[in-house]
């Protein structure tokens, strides 16, 4: 019994190693890339389109809509990053229906890596949108006293992001493992279904939280058209 797919190591050469996390991540990446490529291979502006393409379009447009609803004005700019987060986490949870598969999101290394990416992307988008001064100023809002708290908040929420996803995915796998030893019939299936649901919910949560962080970084005290309108 292992807590993380990191512990399943297929190949190791000193510092370098190839564990189940990385391998399954590659599998997911391959499926996503090849699937997208296959589906979007014969793209045209025709009104008639395949079911798979409709599915992809729904996913893409829904993601875009969600980003916009959270408050990001130019969703197309953030869509690849946030959309990839959602798709990766969701697919990682969805693939648990295949036996022998270990979700890479069940590894704290993966969730930490994703959280780190968000941790880096948030100030990056903020600076891109508002410039260095504008972004850094947000750390001393509303007063200078808040600076340490803001920094702590930034770090803690990244940690929370990583641990939340890891805990949920790992616990799902753990519960199924434990249940299999106790009641090998019926119950694991129910738990599996529940696991799929929590996986989807976690994917959504991870995606929406990241969006909110980025939105907060890019929007705070920036006089957008709406703010200008209110000032007038």
């Amino acid at each position: 019994m292992h807590l993380s797919p990191d512990e399943i190591i297929f190949w190791q050469y000193g510092f370098l190693k190839l564990n189940a996390t990385i391998v399954f991540t590659w599998v997911l990446m391959l499926v996503l890339a090849v699937g997208s490529k296959l589906i979007t291979r014969k793209l045209s502006s025709d009104l008639k389109r395949s079911r798979w393409r409709n599915l992809l379009e729904i996913v893409v447009t829904m993601t875009e809509k969600q980003i916009e609803e959270v408050g990001l004005r130019n969703p197309k700019k953030y869509l690849p990053f946030l959309g990839a987060l959602f798709l990766f986490v969701a697919l990682a949870a969805l693939f648990t229906i295949f036996p022998g598969y270990e979700p890479p999101t069940g590894s704290l290394s993966t969730t930490a890596a994703l959280a780190l990416c968000v941790f880096v992307a948030t100030p990056l988008f903020g600076i891109l949108e508002r410039g260095w001064g504008g972004y850094l100023k947000s750390y001393v809002q509303p007063t200078f006293v808040m600076l340490p708290f803001n920094i702590i908040s930034e770090l803690s929420r990244t940690l929370a992001l990583a641990v939340r996803l890891f805990g949920n995915m790992m616990s799902g796998a753990m519960i199924i493992g434990i249940l299999l030893t106790i009641t090998p019939f019926i119950f694991p299936i129910v738990m599996k279904a529940l696991g799929l649901l929590t996986g989807m919910v976690q994917a959504y949560i991870f995606f929406i939280l990241s969006t909110v962080y980025i939105a907060a970084a890019t929007r705070v005290s920036k006089p957008g058209p709406e703010a200008e309108h209110i000032e007038k």
């Binding site: 990446m29 959309g83 798709l87």
Partner: peptide, 20 residues
């Protein structure tokens, strides 16, 4: 693994952007 996964994710972002 963290570094590898971060890299993997960035590649995935590029792939998604490119193909999807």
């Amino acid at each position: 693994t963290i570094a590898a996964q971060a890299l993997n994710f960035l590649i995935l972002v590029w792939l998604m952007k490119r193909f999807l």
